[in-house]
Design a protein around this nucleic acid. Structure first.
Length: 787
DNA sequence: AGCCCTCGAGTTCC
DNA sequence: CTCGAGGGCT
């Protein structure tokens, strides 16, 4: 029998056995093999499939969840968000007291009350993940992501030996385990020795090793890395046999009993002194631990007290990370250079003598802005203390002034003066020679060159092609550099005219890469409207604002001719942002650049009519309010709106407007003044015209989707039993309601799930009615039917 | 007028 | 990750 045939047969056999075990486990509730055997079978099959991808069958047990050829990870929404833990800023022992004091105050405990019981654990330096077990079988694994949405990395997590594919004992129906994937220091060293011997890339530090391995699209790579796992918490839990644990320590013990690895360095402690002692003891032990930690974590042990304490925005009030001081190192500043960003922002950066700190070699450190450099008085030649802020971004902490290079003063040879002058921001852009200007009250200085400045041109092209914008794969900084310097590309539209022959002539560009890039560009032509708007790089318009614009206005054509006052009616868009957008589209060069993109075949996807709510938002009083007429308050605007219900007349009859209304004399005068200017009159006319166009384009009221919640404002808090937060939000918005972030007097209803925090307290205080999920669905349903 | 929160923008290193 | 700015609410 050939090797291939033997492998195929073995794979089929493994599949059959795993399926049989799954059936026994799920349906008959009678495990037929030990977990170790099951794990071994599964991993063997997985290894075979990785080595011989042609053997993969669509129904293979390895494929069933998250199993698909990976070109990108799917997104996973965490029903119980993966929270970040607030970091106690004080790295000294007093950090423990600060935390204890906050907890006691929140719980309303006095001096006489007994100490609060905590669990102290280690804070591992790795990658936080969530593992979902259904009926005790691992079905999905995800990264933390931004806390509410992560990436589906099930296949990679399955290759981690510490992660059981099946839990032991009395398993809950559903259990999401939260924990950290890490690599031990010894394993990292061993791996690097072998990798170096094979001539492969080595891993820099354990944290990057863990994060990098799990985010590999090819599970074979993750499988080849010696990753480990520690569990430290749970997310969604359903059907815990005998009831869920009542304390965090009991929870950890239960996780251990289920076969999950839990770090043994943990303790139940009472009072702040014990916490501080734990912090100190672990600090001493830290160098000898087999893995990296960056601090310890304290959690209130009783889960009912945790619920009482609740959350402060995204962070639990019942837990805190007490870190060890960040590793610092000293090095010399070789030079201070300035970088020019895509918006022209001039940023000073310190070029450092390479220094190893916090697991990586640092050669650059940002100095943020002129004031920052002045405050710290960083100069060329200085010895500086460098650390990695939040263990990621290098930062200059301070200058060691005693070690500053000095020279004799030219005036008085017996006096020493610094060898280098204080840093001064250049007055002209180093890239294009344009003036550098710093607006009154702004921290950043900017190059005024605009499109003349090659740095800004390059920056905007990179932004345009970026992953979160048009997502053109293969268009990196080196390539953009060449394209711009050789005069091949000036505007985004030029990119779409590039040909394989031209590209293939560039450095580090072969025929194949050139073809790929042209294909990637072609593929990017139909990105969504929101991405397209974001890609334009309008100041103050990031991802989120771009989405708002796309969502509300629905088309590029409408966006292009929407005047400032109407823009300012949209949620989260105020005067500054609206002005920035209107000014962008009023600039002929930008107009031309967009026309050129459309001519090149770029078609922003999913265009649709403007949102129905826009009609309500366009009420004239709000528009008047946004016009920027001096002293025209909301109530006065409302009066005008009644007088001139379609606005257009106001523009034509400005003098009459002032006379007819009962506005105070001063306001009338201001209004006449304001309207007297030709630009303002034109704006008002344009606004009136566009408002009419938008209203005409809006979906017909009456028939169409029922909008039972129109005009109501909701706030969602806690975890709802079946709906995800986003889903609840979408439902409310679809029914015409608005969802906002925090409870105020204007909130009509609070939708509260389990683990509701301060928002609930607030709602009760303000007398805002509180709904549960069922009640919300009831409102949607009932009124939806009657309308 | 002042506070809180979210969003934008810039940065580093692999 | 961090800072600063803008928006919205008290």
């Amino acid at each position: 029998m050939s090797l291939a045939a033997a492998v195929r047969q073995r794979a089929a056999e493994l599949r059959a056995r795993i399926e049989a075990h799954n059936r026994a486990y799920y349906e008959l509730d009678a495990p037929t093999v030990s977990d170790e055997v099951y794990d071994a079978l599964f991993r063997e099959l997985q290894a075979l499939e990785t080595a011989y991808p042609e053997l993969i069958t669509p129904d293979s047990p390895t494929r069933r969840v998250g199993g698909r050829p990976l070109d990108a990870f799917a997104h996973v929404t965490h029903r119980v968000p993966m929270l970040s833990i607030q970091t106690e800023t004080d790295t000294q022992a007093s950090g423990a007291w600060n935390f204890d004091a906050r907890v006691r105050k929140e719980l309303g405990l006095g001096e006489a009350d007994p100490p609060v019981e905590y669990v102290a654990e280690l804070k591992f330096d790795g990658l936080a993940v969530s593992l979902r077990y259904e009926g005790g079988v691992l079905v999905q694994g995800a990264t933390r992501g931004d806390g509410s949405t992560g990436e589906d990395v099930t296949q990679n997590l399955r290759t981690v030996r510490d992660i059981p594919l099946k839990l032991k004992g009395n398993v809950p129906a559903v259990l999401e385990v939260r924990g950290e994937v890490y690599m031990s220091r010894a394993d990292l060293e061993r791996y690097n020795e072998q990798a170096a011997a094979r001539g492969e890339k080595t891993l820099v530090n354990p944290r990057n090793a863990a994060a990098g391995s799990i985010r590999q699209l090819d599970p074979a790579i993750a499988a080849s890395r010696p990753l480990r796992f520690f569990a430290y918490g749970v997310g969604v839990v359903e059907g815990w046999p005998g009831g869920a644990p009542a304390t965090h320590s009991a929870l950890l013990d239960s996780l251990e009993a289920l076969g999950l690895p839990v770090c043994k360095y943990r303790a139940v402690l009472a009072g702040p002194q014990a916490l501080a002692d734990f912090h100190a003891r672990m600090g001493e032990l830290r160098p000898e631990l087999p893995f990296d930690i960056d601090g310890v974590v304290y959690k209130v042990n009783r889960l009912d007290l945790q619920a009482t304490l609740g959350f402060r925005s995204r962070e639990p009030r019942w837990a805190v990370a007490h870190k060890y001081p960040a590793q610092e190192a000293r090095t010399r500043v070789e030079a201070i250079v300035v970088q020019v960003g895509r918006t022209g922002a001039i940023t000073p950066v310190a070029r450092l003598q390479p220094v190893f700190v916090g697991g990586v070699t640092v050669t650059n450190a940002t100095l943020h802005n002129e004031d920052e450099v002045r405050r710290k008085d960083v100069r060329v030649g200085d010895l500086v203390i460098v650390r990695r802020a939040g263990d990621v971004i290098p930062e200059v902490v301070a200058v060691v002034f005693e070690a500053r290079p000095m020279v004799p003063s030219p005036d008085d040879l017996f006096t020493q003066v610094p060898a280098h002058p204080p840093f001064i921001l250049p007055r002209y852009c180093p890239e294009c020679g344009s003036h550098v200007v710093r607006e009154e009250g702004e921290a950043v200085a900017r190059c005024s060159g605009g499109l003349v400045c090659p740095a800004q041109v390059k920056g905007s092209l990179l932004h345009f092609a970026g992953r979160r914008a048009m997502d053109v794969e293969g268009l990196g900084d080196k390539l953009v550099e060449q394209l711009v310097d050789q005069g091949l590309v000036r505007t985004p539209a030029d990119l779409y005219r590039l040909e394989v022959a031209t590209l293939a002539g560039l450095e580090r560009m072969g025929e194949k890469s050139a073809e790929n890039l042209v294909a990637a560009l072609a593929a990017s032509k139909t990105r969504s409207l929101a991405r397209f708007i974001f890609a334009l790089g309008i100041r103050h318009v990031g991802e989120s604002t771009a989405r708002t614009l796309a969502d509300w206005l629905g088309s590029l054509a409408l966006l292009r001719r929407t005047p400032q006052p109407i823009l300012a009616v949209l949620p989260d868009i105020g005067g500054v942002v609206a002005h920035s957008i209107a000014a962008f589209f009023a600039e002929p060069r930008n107009e031309a650049a967009i026309d050129a993109l459309l001519a090149a075949g770029v078609i922003p996807g999913d265009e649709h009519p403007p949102r129905a709510e826009l009609g309500e938002a366009l009420a004239w009083e709000r528009l008047y309010g946004n016009l920027g007429v001096p002293r025209l308050t909301e109530s006065r605007a409302r009066e005008l709106a009644l007088l001139f219900p379609d606005g257009a007349d106001l523009a034509r009859e400005s003098a009459l407007a002032a006379r007819l209304s009962s506005l105070p004399q001063a306001v009338s005068a201001a209004l006449v003044d304001w309207l007297g200017e030709a630009d303002h009159r034109a704006l008002l006319l344009q606004t009136a015209e566009l408002r009419a166009t938008i209203l005409a384009a809006l979906p017909e009221p009456g028939p169409g989707p029922a909008r039972p919640l129109a005009g109501l404002t909701f706030v969602i808090t806690g975890t709802l039993p079946s709906l995800k937060r986003d889903e609840a939000k979408a439902l409310i918005e679809a029914a015409g309601g608005k969802v906002s972030g925090s409870v105020s007097k204007k909130t009509d209803y609070l939708v509260a799930g389990s683990e509701a925090g301060s928002k609930l307290d607030n709602a009760l205080k303000l007398g805002v009615p509180v709904l549960d999920e069922a009640a919300l669905l009831g409102m949607l349903d009932q009124q939806g039917e009657t309308e």
